[in-house]
Design a binder for these strands. Structure first.
Lengths: 125, 125
DNA sequence: AACCTTATTGCAACTATGTTGCAATAATAG
DNA sequence: CTATTATTGCAACATAGTTGCAATAAGGTT
């Protein structure tokens, strides 16, 4: 039970994510919305939207948190199993809809995995 | 040209990494060595050791930086192509010597990738 | 061994990302 | 319209990591 009330701030953030297929970093979001809402509010709304599986989060190569729309996530089991791609040229980050299979590791139990790919996107290749 | 002088501090840190096959987070290292050297020194030594391909670094699931010994890295091309594994029970982090193949992505150029696996290690499974 | 050069270190101050407590505000049920 | 309480704003804090600069010390040279 993340988002209970559809406030102006929640709607604003949801609209932003609905206008793009790309991921957005929290830093970027705070910068874009700094005249409209407090950074604490942004952190908390993103948290709630992730609880509701409308967004999912992951860490970029520099440890900054990114969020993107969820497509395949249910609210129960919503790990981002797909990899995330960061373009070294334009900086764009998005979800890649391919499966990366993690091989079995002897005597270990794999629970989930994060894959971050760096390279050049369609427009920069 | 990372490490030029073999100072006491450099030797201390190298010894620590040589005594284990596990990765060590910078935070942990700062805590362990706080009576012996400054945190700035630690950051800088780790940086130099990575330049020399004696260590490699990667980000843990919470964005904290970890370092581990390099086995297969040359000083030219030393990406950590192998995945890193973090045990959700005991917290141990280490390198996993398996290959995770990233499939080709249409119209994109993959340059490198980071794979972080979470699960249970041999002792906690 | 004493000296010189400069890589390395320590310190303090700073940046950036993210968190917390609490009072004020506003969404929604009744 | 009113009451309840989820949500927000703010200020203060926490933590990871960086920077500038003066002091120190490694290691080559004499």
């Amino acid at each position: 039970m993340g988002v209970v009330r559809k406030t102006k701030s929640v709607q604003t953030i949801l609209e932003i994510f609905n206008q793009t297929e790309e991921a957005i970093s929290v830093v970027e979001l705070i910068e874009r919305l700094k005249s409209q809402m407090n950074k604490t509010t942004i952190y908390r709304i993103l948290e709630r939207l992730e609880e509701d599986a409308l967004l999912h989060s992951f860490l970029g190569h520099d440890g900054v948190k990114w969020y993107a729309k969820c497509h395949e996530c249910s609210s129960h089991d919503h790990h981002d199993v797909h990899p995330h791609f960061q373009c070294v040229d334009c900086g764009k980050v998005d979800c890649v809809e391919i499966d990366v299979t993690i091989p079995k590791i002897p005597n270990r139990q794999v629970m989930n995995s994060n894959v971050l790919i760096r390279g050049r996107c369609e427009e920069c290749v």
